[in-house]
Design a protein around this nucleic acid. Structure first.
Length: 401
RNA sequence: GCCCUGGUAGUAUAGAGGCCCAGUAUGCGGCGCUGUCACCGCCGUGACCCGGGUUCAAAUCCCGGCCAGGGCGCCA
């Protein structure tokens, strides 16, 4: 309930439930700032009622009743004149954070007390935006002919090599938590054509940065008969749609600039084949918004990446400044080529036999990408730390809450 | 894995060897105030991460531990 929602109820008596955000006591009149999932609104108690209600601990969940009247509040043209109240469940008087936000707690303290933290409308807004973002993504991709799929997160073999995976015991056999849906989404292209998945993935890397988590959310797509440029157009369109749908002001360029890997290597004075470090990307990306880096050396990309000429690949990364938001490109669809790329990447084709099967059944050419949703949201909401846009972040130091 | 920084009331902070049995804000308890809007004023409450050491004297310096934040690497 927000003050403006009370407008149509002027003169009527209402009964509302919610929590007490704060009190402003002025002698015989007390203003009670009430909160509920929709927002904050003002209620007023006088005389005896005022004396009684201020004894209820802040953040307690209560029921109030009384008529709605026009008020003089700056942010609350309408208010509830409290005729009675009932404490449904009281809160501790010592709270680990201050939901009235008179003192701002640190991110760690807030995350450790997330449910209470989210009683702050501004903090709740982050996750309402996140929810809406996911809705926009689903609508955009579904509207573009993609089918939403669910692939397993418990897997038997490493999907791409590279990142460390979490290993665990699966009824006596070794199993891993999925690092990406890469192999499954490519297999599904065979019959579904265009697929997408929004899910959590896991990396067992002991990263200690503001942009890495051990459990993160990825938006993945894969599309039959799409070329790399089609995949790039799609993600650019999706990013634009998200800014539009979420009403985030941002000076979006006509088109996202495209740089080649070689441009950056030359700019940084590196040699072909060197990976681009955070330092190089931060330097190159300084002052830049969204842009693409294309034509990476095949040696720096996973085995399923389609080669371009001898040394390059049909790949791209979507960047924001120095931060990698997504990566993708065209994939290999020919069995023989995939087999030899596996070997060239130092992987054992035998352990990918389940996956390779699909490439003998008429696999169409295809392209796709995987996008770090948390990272995009971080940029979109102008947050410094990925943990700010994840409800219960998992990093190497935090397994709880 | 490497490196840097930091742990002071519930929360957020001041503090750089004696001015500190630790100051401020907010919270909490109390008193006053009839329209606030971070209401205000007054009183009270509550803290130096743990263990050693140096020193006449340690929140402050040194060593170790634990915990946390961040950078690099890895990676999305």
């Amino acid at each position: 309930m927000q003050s403006r929602d009370l407008e149509g109820l002027e003169g009527k008596s209402v009964t509302l439930t919610g929590w007490i955000d704060s009190f402003r006591q002025l002698g015989k009149i007390t203003f009670v700032i009430m909160g509920d999932p929709e927002g904050n609104y003002q209620a007023v108690a006088r005389e005896e009622m005022a004396r009684k209600i201020v004894q209820v601990p802040r953040q307690s969940y209560i029921k109030i009743w009384g008529p709605v009247a026009r008020g003089q509040g700056k942010a609350s043209p309408f208010e509830v004149r409290i005729e009675g109240f009932e404490v449904i469940n009281s809160a501790d008087t010592v709270l680990p954070i201050d939901p009235a936000s008179k003192v701002n707690s640190e991110l760690t303290t807030r995350v450790n007390n997330r449910p209470l933290d989210l009683r702050v409308p501004e903090e709740r807004a982050v996750f309402l935006t996140r929810a809406k973002a996911m809705q926009i993504i689903r609508e955009f991709l579904t509207g573009s002919g993609f089918v939403e799929v669910d692939t397993p997160k418990i897997i038997a073999t490493a999907s791409e090599g590279g990142a460390e995976l979490f290993k665990f015991d699966y009824f006596g056999r070794p199993a891993y938590l999925a690092q990406s849906p890469q192999l499954y989404k490519e297999e599904l292209v065979l019959s579904l054509g265009k697929v997408f998945e929004i899910a959590h993935y896991f990396r067992a890397e002991k990263s200690n940065t503001v942009k890495h988590l051990n459990e993160f959310t990825s938006v993945d797509i894969e599309a039959a008969m799409a070329m790399r440029d089609d995949a790039m157009k799609l993600i650019e369109g999706l990013v634009r749609e998200m800014y539009r749908g979420l009403e985030v002001n941002y000076a979006m360029p006509e088109r996202f600039p495209v740089y080649t890997y070689e441009d950056i290597v030359n700019h940084a004075g590196l040699k072909f084949g060197d990976d681009l470090s955070s330092e190089v990307l931060n330097d190159f990306g300084r002052g830049k918004g969204y842009y693409f880096i294309v034509d990476w050396p095949i040696s720096l990309k996973p085995f399923y990446t389609m080669p371009k000429g001898d040394a390059l690949s049909e790949s791209f990364d979507l960047m924001y400044g120095g931060l990698e938001i997504a990566s993708g490109g065209q994939r290999i669809h020919q069995h023989e080529m995939l087999y030899s790329r596996l070997k060239a990447s130092g992987l054992d084709p035998e352990s990918f036999s389940e996956h390779l099967k699909a490439y003998r059944w008429g696999m169409p050419p295809h392209s796709g990408w995987g996008m770090g949703l948390d990272r995009l949201l971080m940029v979109l909401m102008n947050r410094e730390n990925i943990r700010e846009v994840v409800l219960y972040p998992r990093d190497s130091r935090h397994l709880a809450p």
